[in-house]
Simulated assay, not measured.
Amino acid sequence: MARPTAEKAQDILMSDFQTLVADTEKLLAHTASLAGEQADELRDQINESLVRARETLSVAQAALRERSQEAVVATEEYVQANPWQSVGIAAGAGFLIGLLATRR
């Protein structure tokens, strides 16, 4: 049950970053009509930043997926090895959340 939620959150985060990069590319394309040496330098700098952002994004995405997968596996192993402790922890957390929610 936790696995689909974590994967969905990762997908949303990666989608948002990819949208940011795509929007920046559109901005770069719209600045193509600008003329002059400074505009060319600005476009080159933006383009270099986009390339670095894409590389960083792909590395971060792979690392995030790997770490979250490890966390999900570790949690599942713990719950399977200690089912009653897991139930107790979940009940305690639910009780605390209930107390905090009713204090409003």
Rank of each mutant, 00 (worst) to 15 (best):
V73D: 14
L100S: 08
N82A: 07
L28Q: 04
L34G: 07
L96I: 06
S58I: 06
A63P: 03
Q80T: 13
S86H: 01
I97K: 03
S86P: 01
L100V: 13
D44P: 01
A39Q: 02
A53S: 10
S86K: 01
R104T: 15
M14Q: 13
Q85F: 00
P4A: 03
Q80M: 03
T5S: 04
V73H: 08
L20C: 15
E76D: 10
S49H: 11
V87P: 05
A22D: 14
A29S: 07
K26H: 08
A74F: 05
R3A: 08
R43T: 02
D11L: 14
R43L: 00
A74H: 06
E48Q: 14
A74S: 13
T24L: 06
A91L: 11
Y78P: 01
V21K: 05
V21L: 12
A9G: 05
A32R: 10
M1D: 08
D16K: 07
E55C: 01
Q38D: 15
Q80A: 11
G92S: 09
A53I: 05
S86R: 00
T5E: 06
E7P: 00
E76Q: 15
Q10L: 14
A63K: 14
T19N: 03
T5M: 03
F95W: 10
T24R: 00
Q85L: 05
L13T: 13
L13D: 10
D16E: 15
A39R: 01
Q18K: 11
P4V: 02
K26M: 09
L100F: 12
G98Q: 00
R103I: 14
A60T: 14
L28K: 06
L28S: 01
